[in-house]
């Protein structure tokens, strides 16, 4: 049924989908959540293509995706060391002050002996967010310069898989809960790290939201065919 010949990439199926459809592989897309084949209609930025069977969002193009993700990822990378290594806040109880960084949180968890928890903390609040920012930065920089090195598809795959393991937003809520929890018992000063962390969380979230995966893959594929 299938020929490897590039020109013969047409699907002829009598099963369903209209009466007797014949379409090109570039003109269909499949829903990742229910496998339905759908006609690939051009969608404008701001609009969405939603699966008619299961309501999964199939396409949600972002305008100027490469530039926006590049700028936000770069900002995030600059903020990163400050957010992780600068004190988040200082607690003042009976005249004794104590401040802490995100990094201290991981180290002190390691010292309690719960190394699994410490590793998960390090991965979700430092390693994965940093990897994600670096990958977004590097991939969008290459796309902007119209260069597709051979390792770029692999990098993009790592990004797709690491997406949900960066948990800066959850840590942000954790910081807020800690503040609300402690504000009765101690006086709290906000330190540089708090503002840097907030800014980092917002830029990291922004860079993930600005990144249009479909468009990135399309550019990678296009660049490889040409190069």
């Amino acid at each position: 049924m299938w020929s490897n010949d590039f020109n013969q990439k047409t699907i002829g199926s009598k099963a369903a989908y209209g009466s007797e459809p014949t379409f090109n592989l570039d003109q269909v897309l499949a829903c990742p959540a229910c496998d339905l084949l759908i006609e690939n209609k051009p969608v404008q930025p701001g609009e969405k293509l939603i699966c008619p069977r299961c309501d999964e969002i199939l396409l949600a193009p972002k305008s100027n995706s490469v530039n926006h993700s590049l700028a936000l990822a770069l900002t995030g990378l600059i903020l990163f060391p400050y957010a992780v290594f600068m004190p988040i806040m200082t607690l003042d109880t009976m005249g004794i002050e104590n401040s802490g960084t995100i990094f201290d949180g991981i180290i002190s968890t390691w010292h309690t002996g719960y190394w699994l928890v410490a590793v998960i903390l390090a991965m979700t609040s430092v390693a994965f967010p940093l990897i994600k920012l670096f990958l977004i930065f590097w991939i969008s920089l290459n796309l902007k310069r119209k260069r597709i090195p051979g390792y770029l598809p692999q990098m993009m795959r790592i990004y797709v898989h690491s997406d949900e393991w960066g948990m800066l937003e959850v840590m942000m809520i954790g910081i807020l809960v800690t503040i609300i929890k402690m504000h009765h018992t101690a006086h709290i000063h906000y330190d540089t790290g708090f503002f840097c962390f907030t800014a980092l969380m917002l830029t990291a979230l922004g860079s993930s939201l600005a990144l249009d995966k479909t468009e990135f893959w399309r550019q990678i594929e296009h660049g490889r065919i040409q190069g």
Binding site: T93, N98, G105, S108, T109, L121, T124, W165, M167, G174
Partner: peptide, 19 residues
């Protein structure tokens, strides 16, 4: 991912409340 919240809060308290 949101269930990680309590773990994050405990890690932060561990550092800050350490007098």
């Amino acid at each position: 991912r949101w269930s990680m919240l309590d773990i994050f809060v405990i890690a932060l308290l561990q550092v800050l409340v350490n007098f």
